[in-house]
Amino acid sequence: MSMMKEFKDFAVKGNVVDMAVGIVIGASFGKIVTALVAGVIMPPIGVLLGGVNFTDLAIVVKDAVGDAPAVVISYGAFIQTVIDFTLIALAIFVIVKGINKLKKKEQAEPKAPPAPNAQEILLTEIRDLLKAKS
């Protein structure tokens, strides 16, 4: 089997396409959740914490000298990223929990069994005839 044929078989399989669609949708959803956290959730949290902007928190290791910029440890950006991650994870958890709840509801509803097809009816009649002969 040539390498090109193997690649074609791999790339055209449904799982690869499904995965690609999932990644694209996931990236878009990530942007939505990031915007939600940055624009809607974090401003009230900042107000509750006294207007602290975490991204500005830093420790100056060495002051700027001439053209050389200051050397700083920006621990505030790290704190902000951890908070963003926690809130994003919480938002995704709530959404997945809601979807799972809907799925459970869907599964709990009893479904009527499908009507037997002609072949099943015929096989049932043959079984009953054989039972009657015994």
Rank of each mutant, 00 (worst) to 15 (best):
L129P: 13
I83Y: 01
M4F: 08
V96K: 05
I99G: 02
N53T: 13
L90A: 14
N15M: 08
E109D: 11
M19T: 13
L129S: 15
T81Q: 10
T124H: 13
A68S: 14
V12W: 10
Q107C: 07
F85Y: 13
I121K: 10
T55K: 12
D18E: 09
V40R: 05
Q107Y: 09
N117S: 12
R127K: 14
P116R: 00
K131A: 11
I79A: 03
V60E: 02
G39A: 01
K103T: 03
E125D: 09
V52E: 05
A89W: 11
S74D: 03
L90T: 11
E106L: 15
M4L: 10
V12T: 15
T34R: 10
K97H: 09
K133N: 09
A108F: 01
Y75M: 01
P116Q: 01
T86I: 08
L57E: 05
V61I: 09
E125S: 03
I79E: 07
Q107M: 09
T81F: 07
E125N: 10
P114F: 14
A118Y: 11
V24L: 12
I126H: 02
M42I: 15
I121A: 10
D18L: 15
V65P: 04
F29N: 04
L129V: 10
G50Y: 11
G39V: 05
V96M: 00
I73C: 05
F93W: 10
F10M: 06
A132G: 02
